[in-house]
């Protein structure tokens, strides 16, 4: 597992991927931070967080599009699957690799909080909760997009499908209000990422929100393992 994690990070940082992702992440978060905090003399970071939700939906597929797609295309999955490492370790290693890069991007929020702390004391509970929320949201998206990348050999398909899922998640609320059947909308409401994420931005850490994102991570990593199991047995 640590070998795969190390290799993943190595491949991110030896190529442009990590730097481009970080540059985009820092640029947009910096812009939102400037516009909603610095320019308008506000200590409220919640606009930054809610705007970044949209950016994250697009950044995560970029991080994960290579994950298994490239392995399948280059046939390097053969080395992984014939090594003594179990499927679980391989998938977790891949997940953690992407997650660590994402977490490095999220460090910037702490920097913004510290900048605000120079002027006024910020609402630390909100910042802490939202950072946890943003990490969990990213983790859930990474798990979903890793699952997508395990289904295809093409990085492009993997990324585009990831974007599509991202847009659906983003527009979920609009989608729900457009559906005339109550029972469908109530089901969709329970998987509406925005609701769970928004709770974090209020500075409330609720167990159900944490469990929701953790279950999404667990579920899709499990699906990914099943994809490889199925491929072996078909």
């Amino acid at each position: 597992m640590s070998a795969i994690l190390k290799r993943e990070l190595g491949s991110f940082f030896n190529s442009a991927t990590a730097y481009v992702v970080m540059a985009v992440f820092f640029f947009f978060s910096g812009f939102f931070f400037y516009a909603s905090c610095l320019a308008s003399d506000s200590a409220n970071l919640s606009y930054v967080y809610s705007n970044m939700f949209f950016i994250i939906l697009f950044i995560v597929p970029i991080i994960t599009m290579k994950s298994f797609s490239e392995e399948k295309r280059q046939k390097t999955d053969q080395a992984l699957l014939t090594s003594p490492a179990s499927l679980f370790q391989i998938v977790i290693g891949k997940f953690l690799g992407a997650f660590v890069l994402y977490a490095i991007c999220c460090v910037i929020f702490i920097v913004y909080a510290v900048v605000i702390a120079f002027f006024v004391s910020p609402d630390w509970s909100v910042i802490l909760c939202t950072t946890i929320g943003i990490l969990l949201l990213g983790g859930a998206l990474i798990a979903i997009d890793i699952f997508i990348s395990s289904l295809t050999e093409s990085q492009v398909i993997s990324a585009v499908a990831g974007f599509a899922i991202g847009i659906v998640i983003y527009l979920m609320s609009t989608l729900i209000s457009a559906i005339p059947f109550d029972w469908i909308s109530s089901i969709l409401e329970t998987v509406n990422f925005v609701n769970y994420y928004t709770n974090f931005t209020y500075g409330v850490l609720r167990l159900s929100d944490v469990v929701f994102f953790l279950s999404i991570i667990g579920l899709f990593l499990f699906f990914t393992i099943r994809v490889f199991e199925k491929k072996r047995w078909s």
Binding site: R7, S11, S15, Q74, K75, T76, Q78, A79, L80
Partner: peptide, 11 residues
């Protein structure tokens, strides 16, 4: 050693 060697080309 598979038919196509499983090499990570970027390493």
């Amino acid at each position: 050693l598979p038919e196509i060697p499983p090499l990570y080309l970027d390493m």
